[in-house]
Design a protein around this nucleic acid. Structure first.
Lengths: 218, 218
DNA sequence: ATAAATATGTTGTTTAAACAACAAAACGGA
DNA sequence: TCCGTTTTGTTGTTTAAACAACATATTTAT
């Protein structure tokens, strides 16, 4: 078992590797492998277990009533998913979770982690605090996306997003973690229209870009 | 001091009233009053304190670079705010928090709640678990809003939102907690265009409505 | 009950984004 | 290197939503 991988996950932040194995005993843990394209959780499922990606990666997808599929997020190795649903007892999933490649998942029983008397396991509380950190961070990320898509215009959304990236980076020049299609999906706009808008903005001297590298002017 | 009010807050869920007063001692608590329109937190502020509304209510607002103001959420008495920022040390606020009327806020030091050794206060851990519940619930609400605004069309957004309300209610007939302008803001569309779309949908026999009451057909 | 304020509905015009279709460039094996 | 694939950019057309302006209805206060 690769505890080193777990120790690098935000879930085990600030917990020493040696403590992990005994901790797993009281977390109702089991692991399972999934093939590419295989569904891990379906919309409507109710579960007490959240997952941590050991190997591979998964997509969080939203299939609406009309059959349109959209990818809400991508979860890489070391990251956790479905913890929101696992922490709210009885809350059915509103998304599908699908393996994007051959993937190993370790499942944790959130109810056991939350219900177990605090003193029973020294690091138990640290785990809950880490979950709170993770949840808060996800909150922030969701809020950011809502903000970046609050403008009615493509230009407004681009400027909102790019300004924040620039701020984060502390520089007018920075790289973004998306290609064009992914950025368009994130901002909820059409890719070609967005490319077009970027061109216009470049012509107007607002910014320059090349692939994933951007530089804001003024 | 009105501990009954606190005991009804999700923050003190499952904690008996008698335990609240001693708990406050180790939470770094203080209270402060604000007048209507007064700012409680500014964009960019860094704080370890989250707030609970004792009396009145506050708005969470987003002022973008171009001066457009939008209300992200409304927090009523008993609810908490800014806990996301308070739980992530050093994370500057991306929103303004403004009192919408004469309002009393009780502030809690999140760092003290999170850092303090678990055993020092019997109910301390319950508080952290409640925070996790609150954070998870906010997460879910943010995710829902993102889903309801993922359609490109007004009709798609309306159907997404109304379907969920119907599901929640377990009935084709239900009431929504928004007036038209608030619903338009939530769905990030123009109010008059939305009213127009609702009319069309009614003409097509998709639904009926009256004020806040809706009824989905078929 | 009346007036003022607020909320909702309706219509026509303007605008911007979606959409479609394609060209050019970059990338990744064989 | 070459070929197929993916990504990105460009243009024209269509469509739907924003916007503006107003009418009607509903609520609230006096």
């Amino acid at each position: 078992m690769n505890f080193l991988l777990l120790s690098k996950s935000p879930l085990f932040f600030d917990i020493d590797v040696a403590s992990i194995e005994p901790m797993l005993k009281c977390c109702g843990v089991y692991t399972k492998s999934f093939n590419k394209g295989e569904t891990i959780y379906n919309i409507g499922d109710v579960t007490e277990y959240f997952g941590i990606v050991l190997v591979g990666s998964v997509n969080i997808e939203n299939d609406d009533v009309w059959g349109n599929k959209s990818i809400l997020s991508h979860v890489d190795a070391g990251q956790i998913f479905a913890e929101t649903y696992a922490c709210i007892t009885g809350q059915p999933l509103m998304v599908n979770v699908v393996a994007t490649e051959k993937t190993d998942i370790m499942f944790f029983n959130a109810t056991r982690i939350l219900k177990t008397c605090a003193s029973s396991c020294e690091h138990h509380n640290k785990l809950i605090r880490n979950l709170l950190q993770i949840s808060s961070q996800k909150n922030l990320n969701l809020s950011k996306r809502i903000m970046h898509t609050s403008s009615k215009s493509i230009r407004g959304r681009l400027l909102s997003y790019l300004s924040e990236q620039s701020m984060n980076c502390g520089s007018k020049s920075f790289e973004i973690p998306f290609n064009r299609q992914q950025l368009a999906d994130y901002l909820n706009v059409d890719r070609s229209a967005m490319s077009n808008e970027l061109s216009k903005m470049r012509n107007e001297g607002i910014l320059t870009y090349n692939k994933n590298s951007f530089c804001l002017k003024s």
